[in-house]
Simulated assay, not measured.
Amino acid sequence: MRQFRNMAMPYIVWMVVMIVLPMLLIMLYAFTDQGNDVATIRFTLENFTRFFSDKVFMSVLKRSLYIAVVTTVICIFLGYPIAYVIANRSEKSKMFWILLITLPTWINMLVRTYAWMGILQDEGIINWLLGFLGIGPITMIHTTFAVVLGMVYNFVPFMILQIYTALTKMDKSFLEAASDLGANKVQSFLRVTLPLSLPGVISGITLVFLPAVSSFFIPKLLGGGQYVLIGNVIETEFLTSGDWNFGSAISLAMAVIIMISMYITKKVDNDPTANGKGE
């Protein structure tokens, strides 16, 4: 037992320094005002009141949640068929396709997003091809389409890998039993494969929705300065305005929203009827 504690100590120290202390500082800043002296600092809820009472900030929050939901839904509809096809291929083919999907993630996300700026701009590759066909040019950069496309491109591998893992761990004997009972392929998929793969879908939703709702450089680069999400507001408050108290309040509010969404997804994942175990 003592040996286990000694082995775990570096991880505990790392968590305290890198996670617990920053969260405590965020909470301290969020519930205090801007005081230059420790003795003059007072606790207040004004930062939260300012955020939730301002229509502009609420509009940004709604837009961020909307973009995150749209991104997650698209990733599900794109990721599930791809994961399903890969999971049903030979072992050698599986490794090739998984490598192909994960290969872009080896490149820094910022670099990949800059690449999409060049692709989507008015003089980019897509508009060049459209012009060659006698169409366009079409304005794509600095639009909602560009932001969603950038997020889907960056986050869909996480959805695919989670669903693929759930599908590969599935007991194939269930499909054989369904076939023996007279179920066709569609019925087997709806009654067996889909329910058993839902934990992977739920994990994928978590890995896509959470970074999408708090992303700041994707909307900043692909959406332009006019397209602001909640992550951009937090970045501005910390780096430009220097209002760490208000920025911390927004960060804490987003952390609560994220924890609620994680609780909901965990609740669905633990629901027996969601996993096909209910009657």
Rank of each mutant, 00 (worst) to 15 (best):
M1T: 11
R2N: 11
Q3I: 12
Q3W: 10
F4S: 12
Y11I: 13
V13R: 04
M15C: 12
V17A: 14
V17H: 09
L21R: 06
M23Q: 13
L24G: 14
Y29S: 13
T32Y: 07
D33K: 10
Q34T: 13
Q34S: 14
D37L: 14
D37R: 13
V38D: 09
V38M: 15
R42H: 14
F43Y: 15
E46L: 12
N47E: 12
F52T: 08
F52S: 04
F57L: 15
S64L: 05
S64P: 04
I67E: 02
V70H: 00
I74C: 05
C75T: 08
I76H: 05
I76L: 15
I76F: 13
F77D: 00
G79P: 04
Y80Q: 01
P81I: 10
I82C: 03
N88C: 02
R89D: 09
K92R: 14
K94A: 06
M95R: 14
M95V: 14
F96K: 12
L103G: 03
L103D: 03
I107Q: 07
G118S: 10
Q121V: 04
E123D: 13
I126W: 06
N127A: 08
W128V: 08
L130D: 04
L130W: 09
F132H: 02
G134W: 05
G134R: 04
P137Q: 08
I138Q: 07
M140H: 04
I141T: 11
F145G: 11
V148S: 03
V148N: 04
N154I: 09
V156S: 02
F158E: 04
I160Q: 02
Y164C: 05
Y164H: 10
T165D: 12
A166I: 06
L167Y: 03
L167P: 00
A177Y: 04
S188T: 08
L190C: 06
V192F: 00
T193L: 03
L194P: 01
L196C: 11
S197T: 13
G200D: 03
V201F: 00
I202R: 02
I202V: 14
S203P: 00
G204R: 06
I205Q: 00
V208Q: 02
L210E: 11
P211R: 01
S214Y: 03
S214C: 09
S214E: 05
S215I: 07
P219C: 05
K220N: 13
L221V: 15
L222V: 11
G224E: 05
Q226M: 12
Y227I: 02
V228P: 00
I230T: 07
G231T: 03
N232Q: 14
V233Q: 12
G242I: 07
G247A: 11
S251I: 08
L252F: 15
M254L: 15
M254Y: 04
A255Q: 01
I260G: 01
I260N: 02
M262L: 15
Y263L: 15
N270I: 04
D271E: 12
